[in-house]
């Protein structure tokens, strides 16, 4: 995820050995980031119950260093668990905007991924991807806790491939909600 700013990239390569240095730092920071994905408690519906079950004793997300934070300011990953209604959409966007970079979104469940069984309902957004960029889709209705963990591991792998110089192009988005 995230496009590398070509300007910045070319500048880095010009330094002798700079590439190696950046790679080393990248490795360390990506290790840190992928192992400390604090996620925003964003339970919307059914999937939220499975998300809670994943954090509970039997599956224990804390093993991977994943904590649930209530405030978007301290979260790295937004797990959107459940269907997104038109009424809710602006709030999701705002919460996403409130999260500090680097941030990732995991859509949990068929509804968050693609509208799910409610795709022919007028009040439902056909996937949270229409509102925020999604990194990992976890299908299932609702996904088993193992499935969510699988998704989170995929996200970890994805984060490890990123570079700290990867700057996501962000433009300020005003949401009137």
């Amino acid at each position: 995820m995230g496009e590398v700013n070509p300007d910045l990239q070319s500048r880095v390569v010009k330094f002798p050995g700079g590439g190696v240095l950046v790679a080393g730092i990248d490795e360390i920071f990506n290790w840190a980031r992928s192992n400390s994905m604090w996620s925003l408690t964003f339970g919307l519906s059914c999937c939220a119950i499975e998300m809670m079950a994943t954090a509970a004793s039997h599956y224990d997300l804390d093993r991977f260093g994943i904590l649930f934070r209530a405030t978007p300011r301290q979260a790295d990953v937004m797990i959107v668990a459940g269907w997104v209604s038109v009424k809710m959409a602006p709030f999701i966007r705002r919460l996403y905007d409130q999260m500090p970079d680097p941030k990732h979104v995991l859509a949990m469940g068929g509804c968050a991924c693609a509208g799910g069984p409610y795709r022919d309902s007028e009040t439902i957004v056909k996937g949270v991807g229409e509102i925020v960029p999604v990194d990992v889709f976890v299908y299932g209705c609702p996904p088993r806790p193992e499935n969510l963990i699988h998704g989170l591991i995929l996200l970890q792998e994805r984060i490890r491939e990123e570079s700290i110089l990867g700057v996501r192009k962000r433009e300020p988005i005003t949401v009137q909600g």
Partner: peptide, 10 residues
Amino acid sequence: GYLHRGLEKM
């Protein structure tokens, strides 16, 4: 109403 999906309509 933040989760309203018109289930009865469906």
